[in-house]
């Protein structure tokens, strides 16, 4: 494998990694703080993508569409939290799995009703459709670099939010001792809603960035949801830091798992299974993941 190819693949895997991190961050926070399994997290990824595609078609403005789509995903998330999920926090995990499975069916069907069953193919915004030669001889799409940069920026923002703000302090406190935060007079219900909406906003952002690359269609959030689960399990459920590290690892393994068999003539069977084998291996030695959030 040439060095150029290697570096290019590295960029691709980083890009997948940050997308997975955006998904995993919300999911792992919701678990850490509310002790809630949310299978429907992928639906917000899909909603973000659909909203952004529609907004761009109607307004033509990227700068307007992106924030609106993120807000839209957060708003849908808030509605879901207030109407449904709130009643599930005290329930066992089976109830949560079932109810959020029901939500997936609902949202996948809803976008088919609203947008039709076919996929929407959206263009990469003209502003970002060029290529740059980061490395001489291997031009790389600007858009993918932007996705990468935006993902990393969000990671830094999350770190700042959690490590340096009052909200972050509450989130950290909530993750380690839920009842104590309530006893301190914090409005727990509002904190939960806020955290959930934040997670949905991140998922929506990940989805809208993926739209031009993978296409926008019903059920698009399902495949990435499972990979996100792998990330969370590897990273340690509830741990943001674990999610970040695991997302990058899974991005690497998935990308190189796809290209190495092609180059080395290995059976392609390895490609799709690679991240699950990785997960099995890590779990064997560390059943609670790399960075267990709590004992």
């Amino acid at each position: 494998m040439t060095v150029l190819l290697f570096i290019e693949q590295l960029l691709n895997s980083l890009q997948l990694g940050v997308t997975l991190f955006l998904m995993a961050a919300g999911l792992t926070l919701v678990f850490g703080i509310m002790n809630m399994v949310n299978l429907a997290h992928g639906s917000f990824y899909m909603i973000g993508a659909y909203l952004c595609a529609t907004l761009i078609q109607h307004t033509g403005s990227l700068l307007l569409s992106v924030p609106l789509a993120i807000l839209g995903a957060a708003a849908v998330g808030l509605v879901v939290e207030l109407t449904t999920l709130r009643a599930l926090y005290q329930r066992d995990h089976l109830d949560q799995v079932l109810a959020t499975f029901g939500l997936i069916l609902f949202f996948n069907e809803l976008v088919k009703v609203l947008w039709g069953p076919g996929a929407i193919l959206i263009d990469v915004p003209a502003l970002l459709s060029g290529r740059v030669e980061l490395i001489p001889g291997a031009p790389y799409p600007v858009y993918r670099l932007v996705v990468l940069a935006a993902g990393l920026a969000i990671a830094v923002f999350l770190w700042w939010l959690i490590a340096r703000t009052r909200l972050g302090m509450l989130i950290r406190a909530g993750a380690s001792n839920r009842t104590m935060v309530g006893a301190l007079g914090v409005n727990i219900a509002r904190l939960y809603s806020l955290v959930f909406a934040l997670g949905c906003a991140l998922a929506g952002f990940a989805g809208l960035m993926a739209g031009p690359i993978y296409g926008v269609e019903a059920g698009m959030g399902d495949a990435i949801l499972i990979k996100t689960f792998v990330v969370i399990v590897i990273g340690g459920i509830g741990s943001i830091r674990g999610a970040f590290v695991a997302a990058l690892i899974v991005g690497l393994v998935d990308t190189f798992g796809r290209i190495l068999p092609v180059l080395l003539g290995l059976p392609a069977a390895l490609a799709e299974m690679a991240i699950y084998l990785l997960m099995a291996g890590i779990l064997f030695f560390k059943p609670a993941g790399l960075f267990p959030a709590r004992g």
Binding site: L4, L5, N12, R144, I213, G215, R258, I259, E272
Partner: peptide, 17 residues
């Protein structure tokens, strides 16, 4: 490539090489 796959970044890099 996998049927239905719509991201060819990895394969195209190998193609160029």
């Amino acid at each position: 490539t996998q049927l239905g796959q719509t991201d060819y970044a990895a394969e195209l890099a190998a193609l160029r090489a």
